[in-house]
Design a protein around this nucleic acid. Structure first.
Length: 700
DNA sequence: GAGCACTGC
């Protein structure tokens, strides 16, 4: 069958989108906080809501998807599964769900789910659609993301993060609440969307033949989704974006930072006003580029705009991130040096020029070694096109690709799906939770491979989540319901068993937050380290897990928000991170109470009295394979493969030379093998929990 | 002896 045949192309539209409709993945700030305005005052009357909706209707009517409503809906109505390819600005994420709502009127008490890979997107889309629909957010139209649920029993249209829908699947594998599930941004191929698609396929072929599924994606990959769902029809709706002129390098460059700086300086002289967005692989290159460009900028003539260099990456404190969104005033040009963060998660207005290094950093899981490697690799064509598109959001733009056209041609079409290069213990525990027996032959959109699956099954067996026949255990059932990686879940369950849940739950909560401890700048480093050591008196000997507990206690002992803020600043700790820790802790505690149907006291006097050995042994239960033994030459060798591993410089134990052995929660290979979140281990502790069973489990 | 890309429950 020819590929063209299956493509039903719907409509063509011209440029000039009204600005306020291009908001599919827009976010106003980078702090990702869940606080937001829904744009409606609480006292807004029904009349006001209706009037606002009516005025928005004019804008909606100009959207490509809206114009082709009838033909799109007739396809969706006729087929159980539809693949909808909608380019940026087509309006698919806001309109299609509303069309479906009109279709499934009051008679059914079921809902429509729309999934998004990111929280902010789910929240923003829901509030926009509530406005268009003319209801208060959380009534007919709502959303549900972790820690923030604005939906009720009457909610018909619910935007959720895909993690949230997966949780719902864990609790009700038939999704009996829903009549229709829309998977948005499917092309991003996150592990969670891939899993949902697999579950949906199984469902519609068994107990839910009435369930309607729409897979929405921004770019191609349509064939893949269509084949997966038994040749579901593919609809294509053009979007509205401005043209972006692309140019390539004539000769290969060997220094990305140098090439990017040259490009920015040249562009600054020859091009009209407009901000620059540079895509770089990581923090190291970005910090370097910012420093160089700031210096170079001092020597620019008065006839060209001043260059304002700004970094952007996830580990950057929110206040620093916020700077990239502020427009620059006067005869100035903003130059943002960003990681992949600006490719999908964040939109910066004012960008007219994109400079693309063609590189990104990816974490690749080596299941045979049980370690993650962080690699700098060339991007895919799809990713290059996405980066380029960032120059055409508001007007025509230009993209400078710092590689040759022939090198572009050699790039893979699509980015490798995340699941193909990740640890699959958590996904497989989810499959086991919903009763999948044959994991290898499950309906994987991308099969992670037999070896990866076997390693994960063995891992889950060792954690006690599966029995020796591969069946999920009672413990495994509980682990699957905890919002944690299986290893951390098993730490928590062990802590409950050993009666030291409270201190361990504090530490696990801290470990659940990325970038909780910010890497201080070289100038601040000694001072900050000294302060951290003075607070973590026991952590300085016993390591990072104990340190996290001491930090948590210190943070909680502060009364006012101002004190907390100062404390965070002094110790270079993320204050948003710690707020999250507190939320996660409360959630974990309530989930544990529900799992064990008992009140787990939260008011006992636990401060200053935790038992370090007991705590570390709980972590040993979850991370038995993550131990290394000290060698006479003061290096460490992993107890599994005997490879050399170093304590990461961010660890409390980096300078320590006295540990007989170490336990760590993460093993990452960058320039060399590094252990992160390191704890001191006495050899006797290790022996007490040794004797790891090595019984093989089958893949069935 | 000196450093991790990005999400989500």
């Amino acid at each position: 069958m020819s590929k063209g045949k299956k493509f039903r192309k719907i409509g063509k539209t011209s440029f000039q989108p009204p600005k306020n409709v291009v908001f599919s993945d827009k976010r106003s700030s980078a702090d990702g906080s869940s606080d937001h305005e829904d744009g409606l005052t609480k006292s807004a009357s029904k009349h006001d809501l209706a009037r606002e909706a009516a005025s928005l209707l004019k804008v909606r009517a100009t959207l490509p998807v809206y114009k082709h409503k009838d033909s799109i809906m007739s396809h969706i109505n006729k087929n159980q599964v539809t693949i909808l390819i909608g380019e940026t600005g087509s309006g698919k994420s806001t309109q299609i769900p509303q069309f479906l709502m009109e279709n499934f009127p009051e008679k059914t008490d079921k809902r429509i789910a729309v999934t998004q890979p990111r929280r902010v997107a789910a929240i923003n889309l829901a509030s926009r659609v509530a406005q268009e629909y003319g209801c208060r957010l959380g009534e007919r139209v709502g959303y549900s993301v972790r820690f923030d649920n604005k939906s009720n029993a009457r909610t018909k249209l619910k935007y959720l993060t895909d993690g949230m829908l997966l949780r719902e699947i864990m609790l009700d594998k038939n999704l009996s609440d829903y009549s229709c599930v829309i998977i948005d941004e499917a092309h991003e191929r996150t592990i969670l969307t891939d899993l949902i698609l697999g579950f949906l396929k199984e469902l519609i072929n068994s107990s839910r033949q009435d369930l309607k599924v729409v897979v929405m994606s921004a770019t191609l990959q349509a064939e893949k989704f269509s084949e997966f769902f038994g040749r579901a029809p593919i609809l294509f709706v053009e979007g509205r974006k401005f043209p972006v002129q692309r140019s390539y390098l004539k000769a290969q460059c060997d220094d990305v930072v140098d090439a990017i700086i040259r490009c920015c300086v040249q562009l600054n002289q020859s091009e009209q006003m407009g901000d620059i967005l540079c895509f770089m692989p990581g923090q190291e290159e970005i910090d370097k580029a910012v420093a160089i460009l700031s210096k170079v900028g001092e020597h620019l003539g008065a006839s060209v705009p001043r260059l304002v260099a700004l970094p952007l990456y996830a580990a950057l404190p929110p206040a620093e991130q916020a700077k990239v969104f502020a427009p620059v005033k006067g005869f100035k040009r903003k130059v943002v040096f960003s990681t992949n963060l600006a490719e999908t998660s964040v939109t910066i207005s004012g960008v007219k020029f994109v400079v693309d290094s063609g590189l990104r950093k990816v974490k690749v899981w080596r299941h045979q070694l049980g370690l993650a490697t962080l690699l700098t690799v060339p991007i895919s064509k799809a990713s290059a096109s996405q980066r380029t598109g960032r120059a055409g959001r508001e007007s025509a733009g230009k993209c400078f690709r710092l590689y040759r056209e022939q090198d572009y041609q050699k790039l893979p079409n699509q980015t490798e799906p995340e699941i193909a290069r990740s640890e699959v213990t958590s996904p497989i525990l989810m499959l086991k939770k919903v009763g999948v027996k044959d994991i290898v032959n499950w309906s994987w959109l991308e099969n992670p491979g037999k070896q990866a699956i076997l390693m994960a099954l063995q891992e889950l067996f060792q954690l006690g989540a599966l029995d020796d026949s591969g069946k999920i255990t009672n413990k495994g059932q509980k682990m699957a319901l905890l919002p944690l990686a299986p290893h951390l879940s098993s730490v928590l369950l062990k802590a409950h068993e050993d009666g030291c849940l409270l201190p361990v739950i504090d530490i696990v909560s801290c470990l659940s937050v990325e970038n909780l401890l910010i890497n201080p700048s070289p100038e601040q480093r000694d001072e900050v380290n000294e302060k951290r050591f003075s607070i973590a008196t026991r952590g300085s000997k016993y390591g990072d897990l104990v340190m996290l507990k001491e930090f948590y206690d210190a943070y909680m002992s502060l009364k006012s928000a101002a004190e907390k803020d100062d404390w965070c600043k002094e110790l270079c700790v993320s204050k948003r991170g710690f707020k999250n820790v507190v939320k996660i802790r409360a959630q974990l505690l309530s989930y544990m109470e529900r799992l064990f149907k008992e009140k787990l006291s939260d008011n006992e006097d636990e401060s200053d009295s935790f038992d370090i050995k007991a705590i570390v042994k709980c972590f040993l239960a979850g991370f038995a394979k993550n131990t290394a033994i000290g060698m006479p030459d003061r290096s460490f060798r992993t107890s599994t493969t005997g490879e050399t591993i170093s304590v990461h410089p961010s660890s409390m134990l980096f300078m320590d030379r006295s540990c007989p052995a170490i336990l760590y929660t993460e093993y990452v290979f960058t320039t060399k093998g590094y252990a992160r979140n390191v704890s001191r281990l006495e050899l006797s502790w290790l022996q007490e929990v040794a004797g790891i069973s090595t019984v093989k489990v089958s893949a069935r």
